[in-house]
Amino acid sequence: MEHSHEEIKKHVRKYIFVFVALMALTVITVVVSYLHLTITTAVIVALFIATIKGSLVAAYFMHLISEKKVIYITLLFTVFFFIGLIVLTMTAFHDQVMIPHVS
């Protein structure tokens, strides 16, 4: 990695900015939770904020914003299979001839 001194300093400023953003988002998501929104809205808001926070960590702390192709490809497939797992399993549970839960 041919990072110059200056470049790293620029990075450090970014890290501080990201830190502040993460803190702010944490506060927002907690405050929203006290509003006791309906579950659908709450899920959407909470996961939306979490995704932003997660993306910030991944992009800047984990340097995914400027990473090599091999890693992008690997993660792309991983995310695809993860989505496959979650979506197909959920669909299968919804599309059930017999109801799985009999109480």
């Binding site: 669909t91 299968a92 599309d95 059930q96 017999m98």
Partner: peptide, 13 residues
Amino acid sequence: MYITGMGTTISAF
């Protein structure tokens, strides 16, 4: 898992 009572849509997939 077809015989777990899987519906037609997901089974078709």
